[in-house]
């Protein structure tokens, strides 16, 4: 793609080396600073949405990381966010549970709705929001306490004291995260003694212990070996029967393996969003085609 003969129309001289050149209407528009509307396939719009971003933008101080993103997230499905590094995937999912509040100088506009109500509305109960929206991080982050104490942490902070109730919910969550058989004999041992893959599944168990409605995952497998990755991927598919999953992944094979829908982001914009098979085999936009075939990003 670096040969000038392949480009159509005038080549934009300042094109970033990694990105496709002329002929890509959306990328050209982004370069010119014009607003772009992503292609969202009808199949996505037909789904009942749990989360819905509407014209949602975000600034870190003066620099804008999200540009008027509009995106519904279907209920009880796995939706993958893909796109080159730095395109705003993490930023977007961190808005759903308002983890971006921890960053100094963040400003948002537009709406980010959970079940129809704006999570950024004044007076929103952020703690209540985070109980409804679980999150799994890139690096497994079990607390330095026992496996059991990790899993029941969200229950304890919400005031659950009953030992039998805690034990029962811990078992259910660990079974749900396909970890029970491996840890049932050492629940009182430190969670830091688990392997990386086990730690990540423990974090998933911890996130689902409090029965959230939505599970956000930010590259949950990027720190894991292939075997653990496979197990976590199986797990993601399993939990989507009960939870709505929004997952960021850098790995396109992973997106095609685990997700029902895929959204392709670029430079803080939503570019194309549709059923995963469509996005990977039959994308509508040349930009998406370029990216999923691994030619840039």
């Amino acid at each position: 793609m670096s040969t000038p003969g392949h480009t159509q129309g005038p080549a934009s001289g300042d094109a970033a080396a990694a990105a496709p050149r002329a002929g890509y209407a959306i990328i050209e528009a982004i370069r010119r600073g014009e607003p772009v509307t992503g292609q969202t396939h009808e199949q996505v719009r037909d789904q009942p949405a749990v989360i819905r971003a509407a014209d949602f933008s975000l600034w870190y101080g003066k620099s804008r990381a999200l540009h008027a993103v509009s995106m519904p997230v279907p209920r009880h499905r796995v939706t993958a966010l893909i796109g080159p590094s730095g395109c705003g995937k993490s930023t977007l999912i961190r808005c759903v549970n308002r983890m971006n509040d921890l960053v100094e100088g963040v400003r948002v506009s537009g709406r980010m709705e959970l079940e129809g109500s704006d999570v950024y509305a004044p007076g929103t109960d952020v703690i209540g929001l985070r109980r409804r929206v679980g999150m799994v991080f890139q690096k497994p982050n079990p607390f330095p306490m026992s496996i059991f104490d990790n899993v029941v942490y969200p229950l304890r902070i919400h005031g659950q004291r009953s030992r039998s109730e805690l034990a029962e919910r811990a078992e259910r969550a660990l079974r749900g995260a396909a970890l029970w058989d491996e840890v049932k004999d050492r629940l009182r041992q430190s969670a830091l003694g688990l392997s990386g893959g086990q730690q990540q599944r423990l974090c998933i168990a911890r996130a689902i212990a409090a029965d959230p409605e939505v599970l956000l995952m930010d590259e949950p497998c990027s720190a894991l070996d292939p075997v653990s990755t496979l197990r976590v991927e199986e797990l993601i598919q399993r939990v989507s029967e009960r939870y709505t999953v929004l997952i960021v992944t850098h790995n396109m094979q992973q997106a095609s393996r685990v997700s029902h829908f895929t959204a392709f982001m670029y430079l803080g914009r939503l570019v194309e969003y549709g059923p995963t098979a469509e996005i990977f085999q039959n994308p509508r936009l040349p930009e998406t085609e370029q990216y999923v075939s691994g030619r840039f990003g």
Binding site: N97, M99, L102, I127, G128, L129, R130, R131, G134, M135, F137, K139, N141, F143, P144, Y153, P154, R156, I157, H158, C203, R206, A207, A210
Partner: peptide, 21 residues
């Protein structure tokens, strides 16, 4: 590590709960 704080807050813990627990 900040990942402990973020993990706790993301589970719906308040800041003081995060510090104490």
């Amino acid at each position: 590590p900040d990942s402990y704080r973020a993990g706790s807050l993301a589970l719906g813990a308040s800041k003081s709960q995060t510090i104490v627990r």
